[in-house]
C-alpha cells in the first residue's frame, strides 16, 4: 500500500467511527437510520480503495452498485417503520420504544 491509499483508509476509518458514535449516542430513529447509512458509506469507501489498490476496479464497481441498491431498500424499510412508529405514538424517541422491556 502506498501513502495515498493509507490516507484514504484513515479517512474511511474516521467516517466509520463517526457513524458508530452516532449509532451509540443518538436516540432519534431517523438519526439512527442516517447513522447506519454513514457506516455503510464508510464500508463502501473501503471497497472502492480495495478495488483501486489491487487493480480490480471493474469488480469493485459492480459490488458498489449492488451495495447502493441494497442499502436504499434498507433505508426505505427503516424510514417506513419510523413513520409507522411516529403515527402510533407521536414520537421518534427510541427510549419510549420499550413496550417489550428489551
Amino acid at each position: 500500500m502506498n501513502s495515498l491509499t493509507t490516507a484514504f483508509f484513515i479517512a474511511a476509518a474516521m467516517i466509520l467511527f463517526a457513524g458508530c458514535y452516532m449509532l451509540v449516542r443518538s436516540h432519534n430513529m431517523i438519526r439512527l437510520v442516517i447513522a447506519v447509512e454513514v457506516v455503510m458509506k464508510a464500508v463502501t469507501l473501503v471497497l472502492v480503495f480495495a478495488g483501486y489498490s489491487n487493480g480490480n476496479t471493474a469488480l469493485s464497481q459492480s459490488f458498489i452498485i449492488t451495495i447502493i441498491v441494497a442499502e436504499v431498500v434498507v433505508a426505505v424499510v427503516a424510514t417506513g417503520i419510523a413513520i409507522a412508529v411516529y403515527r402510533n405514538n407521536g414520537d421518534l424517541d427510541l427510549r419510549k420504544l420499550n413496550k417489550l422491556n428489551g
Binding site: 466509520l16 439512527l32 447506519v36 427503516a78 409507522a84 420504544l97
Partner: peptide, 25 residues
C-alpha cells in the same frame, strides 16, 4: 404495524444493518 411488531422490527433492522456493515467490511 402494531407497536410491538414495529419495535421488534426496528431493533432487528438496526442490529442487522450493523452486522451487514461488519460482514461487508
Amino acid at each position: 404495524r402494531d407497536p410491538v411488531g414495529l419495535e421488534g422490527a426496528f431493533k432487528y433492522l438496526v442490529m442487522s444493518a450493523i452486522a451487514s456493515a461488519f460482514i461487508l467490511l
